[in-house]
């Protein structure tokens, strides 16, 4: 999609050849090892990687072994250099991916994160071996960095906390948050520039938060939903989806997705309408479209209700 003139002078891009698991693969200069892995058909798990965002390197699930490097390297951000020799399935890599999945699985509710069961099985991860998971904490919004209450090790500390529903548009269930920073980056200087949310606190007690954990309507949030768009785990979800999941009516197999153009101004953002039972249940935006790059404003994201209220009211 979207092959548009960029104004840059058309210098041919050099191909870089590296070795992945013993086989050579060539990708354009400036590509990441992840791109090369994809080109080589190596399925690499990723969580914090976002196709519209600068890699944050936070989740460390895409690590690979790079010859000559003391430590493993994140494939999602490390750029290829000629002659690199990469292993994606060595004992070290498998161990690292297994542990990252276990550490996340033992501390975060991954029930709505795509592909988790498949990866857990592939890497033989056992997130239950760290013991029973600690129950809900009501203190995660109070930040005292450098302090924690150490128990006796009988329960595994978790992100578990009360769900935040403070508006009608989206829901924040931080028990499902892996702290990948994608929502922060989407809200911040990479896209929306509203800076309504950030990481607060430190270490394991970190938390995505507004200032003093203010409710979203009182914060700088403009409800563009661009954070929800990039959330990889379902920690952020649209209220429409959340409600249907609660009711048990959410069924992706019964949904269609149609790309059309937003009706609200002359910019022409593309919207993906997710429709179930002839009702729009969610609006996303194509990440590879160079008007919006997956971003919308509040109207494009949530301004679809009028179409269906019309039906309910018989107002046609």
């Amino acid at each position: 999609m979207n092959v548009h003139y960029t104004g840059a002078t058309d210098t041919p891009v050099r191909q870089i050849t590296i070795t992945i698991d013993g086989k050579e693969v060539s990708v354009p200069e400036g590509s990441t090892i992840l791109t090369a892995c994809n080109a080589a058909g190596k399925d690499t798990p990723t969580l914090c990687y976002g196709d519209t965002l600068t890699p944050k390197n936070a989740c460390r699930v895409c690590m690979v072994e790079l010859e000559g490097s003391r430590v493993l390297v994140p494939s999602c951000s490390r750029k290829v250099q000629p002659g690199m020799v990469v292993k994606t399935d060595s004992e070290r890599v498998r161990h690292s991916r297994r542990l990252v999945l276990e550490l996340l699985g033992s501390s975060v509710d991954l029930s709505t994160t795509p592909r988790i069961p498949e990866w857990m099985e592939r890497y033989d991860a056992d997130p239950d071996r760290y013991g029973e998971r600690a129950g809900e904490s009501r203190r995660r919004d109070v930040h005292e960095p450098g302090e924690h209450h150490a128990g006796d090790g009988s329960v595994a500390d978790t992100m578990c906390q009360p769900i935040k529903i403070d508006n009608d548009l989206y829901v924040r269930d931080y028990s499902k948050c892996i702290l990948c920073y994608k929502c922060v980056d989407a809200c911040g200087s990479q896209w929306q520039n509203s800076f309504a949310i950030q990481i607060a606190g430190r270490g394991f007690d970190s938390q995505i938060s507004t200032e003093y954990a203010a409710e979203l309507p009182d914060s700088a949030c403009v409800f563009c939903g661009n954070c929800v768009e990039v959330c990889p785990t379902g920690a952020l979800s649209f209220k429409s989806e959340y409600d249907m999941r609660e009711e048990g009516t959410w069924d992706e197999s019964q949904q269609t997705q149609t790309t059309t153009v937003c009706t609200y101004c002359g910019v022409g953002c593309n919207v993906n309408l997710h429709v179930q039972d002839n009702k729009i249940v969610k609006v996303t935006s194509p990440h590879d479209h160079d008007i919006g790059h997956g971003n919308l404003c509040i109207k494009g994201r949530f301004g679809f209700s009028h179409v269906q209220s019309r039906k309910e009211d018989g107002d046609g």
């Binding site: 550490l103 996340l104 430190r202 270490g203």
Partner: peptide
């Protein structure tokens, strides 16, 4: 545990 910045999973958890 106290001094981990929390950025990456291996160290944070």
């Amino acid at each position: 545990r106290d001094e981990s910045c929390g950025q990456c999973v291996p160290c944070r958890v």
